[in-house]
């Protein structure tokens, strides 16, 4: 195999190339040691996008029409519930974490019930459940100004040799999820369903069970993101999940996962998350106005999907 075909088969490499180019431009512009600081900041922020991106990737991989739009609401909901239960106390940390995971479980279950029993298309199902979840979060977290437990805040912002600890943990988690995707029964079933649901069913895969796990996994990861994010940013806020709707889908697409389903990869999500954050950083350092920044972010996503979109779903 020549190196050229190897590269063209690894679509995720492009997200890292993009991230590197954007970083280089920023580093040259600010000069000096600023470049490394930019990378560590990017690692910190990209971590949260990667967490939800992995969940979204599994959902999208199960085939066309599957997407989880309830991620932002779940992030806000889980963050608000966890902060309120822990009330800034270290001792309550395990209970707060359990409550946060319970939020994720409930949302995931609810989404799946809507999809399976009411036969609502996943996009509409997760959208309508997100209305309910967001309202619950708003009603429950009204006037919420609770600081996270010191231990959680410390963990979420800690650094080891200058590298954010949380980023290291999530890199390891991404490795695990990559193995889950490619080497386990579950991961391979997800890929098989995405390639051809009927063939997967005929091959004896319990399609509905796999879909159930996938939606629950996505909601659990969104809840985890909400929990960690509120520790990182000094408390939960009701709109903290907002930006993760586009981000979770964008990193999956830019990372080289096929939106038609059946083809996924985890490393690309890290590359894409770094790329997205570094891009905004670059535009900020160049002193570009908010309007231009929004336009460029949108256009880049449309451009990437246009270039990647050529491949038809395998039949």
């Amino acid at each position: 195999m020549t190196s050229l075909t190897w590269i063209s088969q690894k679509a995720w490499i492009w997200s890292f190339v993009g991230a590197f180019v954007v970083w280089l431009a920023t580093a040259l512009y600010i000069g000096g040691a600023g470049g490394t600081a930019v990378i560590t900041t990017a690692l910190s922020f990209a971590t949260f996008t990667v967490i939800v991106g992995i969940g979204q990737m599994f959902v999208i991989t199960t085939g066309p029409g599957n997407v989880d739009l309830s991620i932002p609401a779940t992030i806000s909901f889980s963050g608000a519930v966890a902060m309120k239960i822990m009330d800034g106390s270290n001792a309550m940390l395990p209970i707060g974490f359990a409550a946060s995971m319970a939020c994720g479980l409930v949302v995931g279950l609810f989404n799946y019930i809507l999809i399976r029993i009411l036969r609502i298309p996943p996009i509409i199902a997760t959208l309508s459940s997100s209305f309910l979840v967001l309202s619950t979060a708003i009603a429950y977290g009204r006037g919420l100004k609770i600081k996270p437990p010191p231990l959680l805040a410390e963990f979420a912002t800690a650094r080891l040799l200058g590298i954010p600890v949380l980023a290291i943990v999530i890199i390891l988690f991404a490795v695990v999820m990559s193995v889950v995707l490619n080497r386990t029964m579950y991961g391979r079933s997800v890929l098989a369903i995405g390639q051809n649901q009927r063939a997967a069913w005929l091959a004896g895969i319990n399609v509905e069970r796999i879909r159930f796990y996938t939606y629950v996994l996505s909601a659990l990861l969104a809840a985890l993101c909400g929990f960690l994010l509120s520790g990182f940013s000094g408390g939960a806020s009701l709109n903290m999940g907002q930006e993760y709707l586009l981000a979770s889908i964008a990193v999956v697409v830019i990372g080289g996962t096929s939106v038609a389903g059946g083809k996924a990869n985890v490393p690309g999500i890290w590359g894409a998350a770094m790329f997205m954050f570094l891009l905004v950083t670059m535009l900020n350092t160049f002193g570009v106005s908010a309007g231009i920044r929004l336009i460029l972010t949108g256009l880049i996503i449309v451009a990437v999907i246009t270039i990647a979109g050529g491949d038809k779903p395998p039949r």
């Binding site: 964008a250 908010a290 309007g291 231009i292 920044r293 929004l294 336009i295 972010t297 949108g298 996503i301």
Partner: peptide, 8 residues
Amino acid sequence: GMSFVWLG
């Protein structure tokens, strides 16, 4: 993606 463009 376009929603960001319109907003921008």
